[in-house]
Design a protein around this nucleic acid. Structure first.
Length: 256
DNA sequence: ATGGCCATAGTGTATGGA
């Protein structure tokens, strides 16, 4: 079984890339972030024609998440019951008996800004909900995939000195991510040997991708039951090379 | 050169992203 996450930065613009990528990589479950589409505009027919079931929750202009799956999708939950939020950033669903959560963590804009305060509160609320979800799905397993907008360590940053203390890299954000891991989750990417300077996002400016000036901020976190089944995890840089790409690359994990 | 790009809403240019 293959599971993946991809921040598409507008599903309206990136639908051709999504369909092209799925044709080459027919993963079993794919979590999308930043669809930026209200539900009435979601491309259900195109995704079903590609052989996927889909659950989604969106809004105008910003945010929006979706879960695509080859198998039936059940027990869909939109948003965090423990954190009332008008922004559409969380979606949970069960596929093949496994629990999947698609997460688009707030960006935070700048350390100590209102958006940064919201980001930390949002992550604290996520922790409360995750604790319950992990307990409810301990046996079969849970995966939470998405754009965390946090680079866990300096080795996940192209220029740690320049980014030190900045949003996406600050101590409080890293501590909030660690608090999620401490619930009993593992960063799938770090279960394996990986190339140095592996990133999942590159700025559109400054030839960011060509110079590999990126960050690793998109993650697949696995509960213990799924960690034991995980045999690989990689970042697919290919779609970042396509014409008019998303600034994020897909992250893929393989489960035995 | 402390900003460069991209998407959205909507036709000027502001906001948000990361």
């Amino acid at each position: 079984m293959k599971i993946a996450t991809w921040n598409v930065n507008s599903l309206k613009v990136r639908l051709p890339h999504l369909l092209q990528w799925l044709a080459a990589h027919p993963v079993d479950v794919l979590c999308l972030q930043e669809t930026k589409l209200t539900d009435d505009k979601f491309p259900v027919a195109e995704i079903e024609a590609a052989g996927y079931n889909v659950a989604f929750t969106g809004q105008k202009t910003y945010n929006g998440v979706a879960i695509l799956a080859r198998a039936p999708i059940t027990d869909v939950v939109k948003n965090n019951p423990h954190f009332p939020d008008e922004q559409q950033r969380l979606l949970a669903a069960t596929v093949d008996g496994l629990r999947f959560i698609c997460a688009y963590v707030p960006n935070g804009q700048a350390v100590d800004s209102d958006k940064y305060v919201y980001k930390l509160a949002w992550l604290d609320g996520l922790k409360t909900w995750l604790q319950a979800e992990l307990a409810a799905h301990a046996t079969q397993g849970l995966a939470i995939l998405g754009d965390y907008n946090i680079a866990p360590e300096d080795r996940d940053v192209h220029d740690p000195a320049a980014w030190a203390g900045q949003v996406l890299c600050s101590d409080k954000e890293r501590a909030a991510l660690q608090a999620l891991l401490d619930l009993g989750l593992s960063d799938a990417f770090r279960l394996f040997e990986q190339a140095d300077k592996s990133f999942s996002w590159w700025d559109y400016r400054q030839l960011g991708f060509r110079l590999n000036k990126g960050l690793r901020i998109d993650h697949i976190l696995l509960s213990d039951a799924l960690r034991a089944r995980c045999t690989a995890c990689s970042i697919d840089r290919e779609p970042r090379k396509w014409e008019q790409p998303s600034d994020h690359a897909p992250v893929v994990a393989t489960l035995s």
